[in-house]
Amino acid sequence: MTARDRPFLLGLTGSIGMGKSTTAEMFRAAGVPVWDADAAVHRIYRPGGPGAAALAPLVPGAVTPDGGVERGALRGALAEDPGLLGLIEERIHPLVAEDRADFLARAAAPLVVCDIPLLFETGADTWLDAVLVVTAPPEVQRARVMARPGMTAAEFDRFLARQMPDARKRARADYLIDTSLGLDHARAEVHSLIARLSGSRHA
């Protein structure tokens, strides 16, 4: 498959509380295939998936009797030994890449969205054609996140510490959607992008 034959790959990302998942659903509702990196990890970790075999040598306590991976136990192991993270990523990232390749091979569309929370942090921008960052003012972001059940200020700060600052993401983005301007604005921006990018691969 040549570059002109394959879909245009648009990365979608944004920090916690910025509206990334809602924006991804807008693309789906418009008929655009969306590959979800978090959903791919869930598939890999479910019983019968390849995650258990990959992680058993590193974190045997996280492997369930039915051949799945218990994410709570995995988080506990990482809390005790943060150095495990890099080793786990070495084993899981290739499986995520396989899941994505399978999805793209089945996606008969001119445009595909790849929903990746840690897009820039994992270097995904090197293989994507363009990146859309969803954003909102800090006070809107904080209010959204703190409204989630069980969320604490400390946990919110931990999320932010893991993610590239919003300002840096915006500086590296090809496209931006400010979700604080309302759902109708975001939906119109999504439809405008679909119209613009769907024909770009074959232009």
Rank of each mutant, 00 (worst) to 15 (best):
L84C: 00
F156R: 05
D102H: 13
W127R: 14
E90R: 15
P110M: 08
E89S: 10
V140L: 06
A101Y: 05
A101G: 09
L95G: 10
L128E: 02
A130H: 03
A153M: 12
G150P: 08
R142Q: 14
D99T: 02
G150A: 09
C114N: 10
I92D: 06
A97M: 12
E155T: 09
V140P: 04
F120R: 02
P94C: 10
R106K: 15
W127H: 12
V112W: 11
L111W: 04
V112N: 09
L104K: 05
T135R: 12
I92Y: 06
A107Y: 08
P137I: 04
D81G: 00
F156P: 00
T126V: 14
I88E: 04
F103D: 08
G83E: 11
P138C: 04
L132A: 03
L85D: 04
F103Q: 05
F103G: 02
E90S: 13
M146H: 07
D81Y: 01
V134P: 06
L95Q: 08
L85S: 13
P110C: 07
A105S: 14
V113A: 04
G83Y: 10
V96W: 11
Q141T: 08
A105D: 14
L111D: 01
V131E: 02
A108M: 09
P94A: 10
V140F: 04
V134C: 01
C114K: 09
A108W: 10
A97H: 12
P94W: 10
P94V: 10
A101H: 11
D125K: 00
P138S: 07
A130L: 02
R91W: 05
V140K: 06
I92L: 11
I116N: 05
H93V: 12
L128W: 11
V140Y: 02
R144M: 03
W127F: 13
P82E: 00
E98T: 14
A107K: 02
P137H: 03
C114F: 12
M146G: 04
L128A: 12
G150S: 09
A109Y: 09
D81W: 03
M151I: 05
D115C: 06
E98I: 12
V113T: 05
E98R: 15
L87W: 07
E98V: 15
L85T: 11
P94H: 11
V131Q: 04
T122P: 00
G123Y: 07
F103N: 07
R100Y: 05
A143D: 12
D99I: 01
A143T: 07
L104E: 13
D99E: 15
